[in-house]
Amino acid sequence: MQQSNRYIIIFTLIMTIVVGGSLALVSQLLAPAQKKSIEFDTKSQILKAVMDISDVDDILSTYDSRIESLVVNVNGEEVTSTDKGPVVAENIDVAREYKKDYKDRLYPVFKFMNKENPNQVEAYIMPVYGAGLWDKIWGFVALKSDLETVAGVSFAHKAETPGLGARISSDEIQSRYQGKKIYNESDRFVSVTMVKGESGGGDASISNFDDKPHQVDGLSGATMTANGVNEMLKKYLDYYQKYFERVKSQGV
């Protein structure tokens, strides 16, 4: 069956309108639900850095009652609005900020408040972002109120090797960071590094990481991912240094 060109053009036009219209409609209808699931996902990731969320029933209300957020720049000054309008920490896309020069980025801080005393900060949660072996890795680091001790971390990845680098998103690896210090004895920033190899790996002198405040056990077979994590932590915690100094000096 051979139709005229006119028929074909009219047919495709109608098809385009119907298809486009229905997709636009669906996208509009589902937008609120999508926004809610993305919000839920972000907030559970933030909370995961400081607490075990597997037995928390209502992530959103927990988040609202315990978290206070703000945005700072690289100089540690609070940013409340840019020329594009007011800034909300939860809406900052860390991946997009990552593409800018580090001096121009916006850095969200999520303060985890004490349950009994809502004015007292229990932990500071900062997003981190970087490159793994195959693709991007990201997460959140929580520091205790002394801004020195790691309260917890939560890492996620896009395409690290399953069973090797992908282990960074497991609780087993993340719990290794708890209690580590990001400053050395003379108060110099040193970050926390993951060593090469597992259970001390090639370095037999390390048999126990409990007395190594700046190091955690490595990932066997995933040194490149571990390097990415180290780099990410070091860079991002460094970007927040000015803010940390300000908080310490003001005691806020």
């Binding site: 997709l23 589902l30 639900a33 999508q34 993305i38 839920f40």
Partner: peptide, 17 residues
């Protein structure tokens, strides 16, 4: 493509994980 986009949008809204 329309149906696939539909599935993907629904999944994004109701099973983000």
């Amino acid at each position: 493509a329309t149906l696939v986009t539909l599935v993907s949008e629904v999944l994004k809204a109701y099973n983000y994980e």
